[in-house]
Design a protein around this nucleic acid. Sequence first.
RNA 1: GGAGGGAUGGCAGAGCGGACGAAUGCGACGGUCUUGAAAACCGUUGGGCCGGCAACGGUCCCGGGGGUUCGAAUCCCCCUCCCUCCGCCA
Length: 430
Amino acid sequence: MLDLRLIRNDEDAVRAGLARRGEDPSTLDRVVELDAEHRSLTARRDALRAEIRTISNQVGALFREQRGDEAAALQEESRALGGQEQELDARSDELAGEIRDLLLRMPNLPAAECPDGGGEADNVVLRVDGFDPAAYAEHQRVPHWDVGAELGILDVERAVKLSGSMFVMYRGAGAALVRALCQLAIDRNVDLYEEVRPPTLVRTDTMVSTGHLPKFVDEAYQLERDDLWAIPTAEVPLTSLHRDELLDEADLPRRFVAHTSCFRREAGSAGKDTRGLLRVHEFDKVEILALGTPAQAADLHAEILARAEGLITELGLAHRVLDLCTGDIGNSAARTFDIEVYAPGVDQWLEVSSVSWFSDYQARRANLRYRPTDGKGTEVLHTLNGSALAVPRVWAALVETHRTPEGQVLIPDLLRPYLQLYLRGDGPFR
RNA sequence: GGAGGGAUGGCAGAGCGGACGAAUGCGACGGUCUUGAAAACCGUUGGGCCGGCAACGGUCCCGGGGGUUCGAAUCCCCCUCCCUCCGCCA
């Protein structure tokens, strides 16, 4: 949520930021208009309240002095003011609600460094690592759904029987590989990041805090009966972990790592990338997230990116890092780096992590504040996060990249300790 | 799910129609004392919104929402959450 005071004090900057995203400025116009009306209304209401308070105190004093019979005129006066006050108050509440509804649907402003652009095509490729199209052999050009079926480690057909299309089921060594990837990703981050196992069903407020609601209702699974939502990412519960709290600057930054199931309706993407593991409704992901001061944000952003990218590198996966342009960054983000792995079997770049800096956008929605060590008052935090490892696409790229001429999957060194039970004999893994 | 009891500042805990943003204690911070520390003593110690360069002023906040009243932390209604007992359950 944008800061209403920023809109008031520097409307031009907000307007420019929204324009860089290609946003229709009419919402901003409306907010500015409603805000002016709201403020003049509350000022009048507060003045009335002050009068009522003064009168009531006078009435109280009369009663205390046993002169209650002299209070009738004052009581009548106050009653009349009360009527006006209620009217103004009701209208003021109404306006405040309208303003909030609009603000909740407005996107974050892009960071100054965020490259301009209208869409995916304008994203800037910062670097490509380990990618040489000519270096891939024929045995690596097999899509993971075929590798998976052949080795009995991925059973898409039966998953569809159980849950419908875009659900998958890992079996045997394939299921173990999911578990191994998640544990690896957690183990690699617990040095700095506190391990958390949060709920995956959350209240509406929790979804609103990260920006997943109200704008993206259609993307989320809702349990209407219980008024709960299935989280699309651990970002949702982790961002709200300190919601409505006032932290001490000395305790910042706070860092968390969480492995959860993630649920996505993928409403807008019917028919797109539906094969195999490219796009699924339910998947495992290890997320890392940080809360910090504005001054800490840049370092934290770099740190999260380095950790996510480092893991991909060590898994031996070709990948590239994109600096998303203003036309492609997510609604809540100010700046985002995407990590895409190259999957040779399907010959596609697959997004495996969006490492985002949300400035104070989510923190304002979640009411995440801190008390500066030297300064006075309170400040709004910054939030940042990224996937340390998103299972399905990494699983796919790994199985395709490390497929041997014999059709087995060669497990990279750092995963081997987690897969000891599956590395004996001539099973699917080697 | 049933029956009771609760929700007040960082924490504990009073207040139960008027002078209450709220006693008191603890904690924290600053000071006096001390070579230093502890103890003791003195003082400070919430947040939101609006106006103001600021000092400051106005208003709101005692779980949330509504109501009664000239006036609500205090009375009434609804909701949420927590605790105890019973039932059920992994």
